[in-house]
Design a protein around this nucleic acid. Sequence first.
RNA 1: GCCCCGGUGGCGAAAUGGUAGACGCGGCAGACUCAAAAUCUGCUUCUGGCAACGGAGUGUUGGUUCGAGUCCGACCCGGGGCACCA
Length: 905
Amino acid sequence: MSCGLRPPTTNNGGQAVTVSMVTAAERYDVAQAEPQWQDAWHAAGCFTATADAAKPKFYVLEMFPYPSGKIHMGHVRNYAFGDVLARFKRAQGFNVLYPMGWDAFGLPAENAALERGVHPAVWTRQNIATMRGQLQRLGLSYDWSREIATCDPAYYAQQQKLFLAFYQAGLLYRKEAYVNWDPVDHSVLANEQVIEGRGWRSGALVERRQLAQWFLKITDFAPDLLAGLQQLDRWPDNVRLMQQNWLGLSEGAEIAFQIADRDDALTVFTTRPDTLFGASFCAIAADHPLAQSVAKSDPAVAAFVADCRLGATKEADVSKLDKKGHFTGLYAVHPFDGGRKLPIYIANFVLMDYGTGAIFGCPAHDQRDLEFALAYQLPVLPVVAPLKGDLPDIVGTATAFSEDGVLVNSQWLDGMTVTAAKAKAIEALVQQGQGKAVRTWRLRDWGISRQRYWGCPIPFIHCDACGLQPVPADQLPVTLPDDVDFSQPGNPLVRHPTWAKTTCPQCGGDARRETDTMDTFFDSSWYFLRYTSPQGAEPFDAAAVKYWLPVDQYLGGVEHAILHLLYARFFTRALQRCGHIDFAEPFKALLAQGMVCHETYKDQAGQWLYPEEVEKLANGQVVKRDDQSLVRVGRSEKMSKSKRNTIDPMELIGRYGADAARLFMISDTPPARDLDWSEAGIDGCARYIGRLYSLYRGFATAIRGSAGQNHEAVQAAKTDAAAAVLATTLNTTLNTLRPALHQAIRDITLQLGDLQFNRAVASLRTLTNLFEDHRTSLGQLLGGSNSADEMTDMLANSLVLMAPLLPHLAEELWAMLGLTDQAALAAQAPWPQHDASLLQQTQVKVAVQVNGKLRGVITLDPECSQQDAVQAALALSTVQAAVDGHGQIRKQIWVPSKLLNLVCA
RNA sequence: GCCCCGGUGGCGAAAUGGUAGACGCGGCAGACUCAAAAUCUGCUUCUGGCAACGGAGUGUUGGUUCGAGUCCGACCCGGGGCACCA
């Protein structure tokens, strides 16, 4: 990099500059400077992205926020990471797309309407305006011209087209499914609104009720979603593993058990056909057709089924229930032993959604089956023996044996391994016509119907005569009515006097609109495509998508590791099938950032409190700020609006500035790790910025101000000896800083590329700490030596390295050093390259161990031979003493430039 | 319950199987100051020692290795997800 501003080298008699002294008036005015640079970036159009096939592109995407009202620390963390990367990639010469928008539909807006009477649209728009301002104040380098909001009819109109395309492609269907029904409020509740089995507002016991709902056939893509994970080598392994487990492929068998004294059979799914001889019962889900039919004639069974319905809808809750069952009075005939009859139970731990909704129970080798068998006094027959040792006491320890082993007590399977027995059992079942090998997925189809107002209307019409009709293309979009009544619970679309009334596109008769709206995950499954042509008249422009997609780096909270990311992956496949796009995976690389956590507060009434409503007294008590009532402090959890344990970052920004707040969020903690919120350290970030300002200010003065620093200093050094000392000092500075800069370039480039933001900050600090250590002689070099240009270039390079991390400060210093003829703005300066030849070390420190224990360190030439190293090592008294203490050297481990280990005996 | 992740100084953390604690926060001491703030300098894992120099140490425990924070096994503790919060 060349430097245009050449410092004068003649002596004009200027005063010596004291680099470290800064008066208050010379301090960095963050509040004034930051908005000014934000304006400058905007005016220069630094961040506006334009598709240009000639340039390599890089799409940086952050999970867009729900407009809850204010940004919180999790957002700042997420967006600070993204912005650093976007700025870094721009400097590296990429054409960067870095957009922002709003996941604007959702439940909280309706809650605000219910609680405060404010219309969801108004509330949402206000929140967006507030949060946009906050993000802009953070100096994030978004292309705001591409901003979108999912609640904008311009967005959801396009979404309705996609919905109809999926319908055309046969990816959508309707079926009955359970919802949480609040019998008092007469409304459907989200899981979040069910607290300990009761409606959050009414307190009524929640029931499960069946409703006809829309489903997307995500299960069609299960094998492809699984296979695709293999290619996502820039996704974290844990996220891929979570997705893999969620898809939940299991290889097993379907077995038809003849029902005794009836003509029909019960088909069960099992992954352990090898354990068939250990079966002691069958169990079916409460929603299984067989259970339904038995319930019709048996009131006790009906009561049990009804009881199961009352219970939980969540898998987590279901699994915590005590295993309960009810005998149906029916028996299943064992397929390999007609003499054995297995009682058929209805059991609360069998899920209708998984497999066939029916199982056979082998208590000895399945923990859930064992618990059930122990509760209902069913036989426990071990059929697999461990490979080593005796069969453990299964009943005594109440622990099923589910590891690998050898078959016993199983007639013609005896002696086989589990794997061989599985194959053999299936083979036998196939021959008998009673079974087959099948693969089952845990994944269920995606239910997208929501009985709510604030979502994208599902573009369908119900006609009594013609049935379900898609809204014709020329009648799209179906927009939400504005005049809605939130004075009572339930979906206002249903109660609206006119909105749902329409005519059938088929017969022209009276018909009703679908009043369900879409799951907001639908909205967020394609927004990254819309960013490429945000104002387009079609959902997205094919050429723009072809250029920008896939997303090169996606950044978001690990809490979205499964649902959102899986739905988005499904969506691109669905769009591919519909011919809209030609790729399957939307996100090439993923950073699953850890959560920002904070302790929680509840008042005496059990209401969540925001941290700012809480005061910590000197005596350690925590009280409510307004009435001093005692507050209950909960453990640290993910910051969330529902628990109100959020921190307003704007207060920090007001106090310290955007750069300090951002630096604080990216320092110290690695991105993927959770962060327990604490303000300890923010002062240090602000001080670092102040220190850098005064440091570089001193350098700027040295460059610009008094010419001939070096000359002055040399003049001042009256004797030859003093002059020689000065020359040596300056030389040392040169020889220290030169490799240090290139080390920093190399390190920061690698670290930012690997998203190790905390380490990049540490590397930058290491470099600038060195500048501080050498500030006097660096000032002298800048002030008119042969190396002045090189030193100025070095400072310019350091600012380019700084620019992604501290963008506002870097601009301020860039201008201050007069570098604007290299690039008008630091944000436009190209990323430096390191010179590997400058990183060669002439001396290396080598650790000397005796029997693996550190006994000394020797400084050697990198090319030093093992023999010489041993000699140098033994010259150390500590090493010699340790060797003497152990006897003879038996072995030497020599890792050049690193370590010498003398193994003695 | 099932799946995933994490555990290293007083605190946040760093460390291709090769000198544990880089870089910070906090603390202590000193310089500057009438004083304070800011700034600067030094020290700061614990422990013994005046020191030189030792001993211990990465949640617990066992193993692999010349050598383990790192790899393998078992366990303990904390956090996240579990399909209608987003």
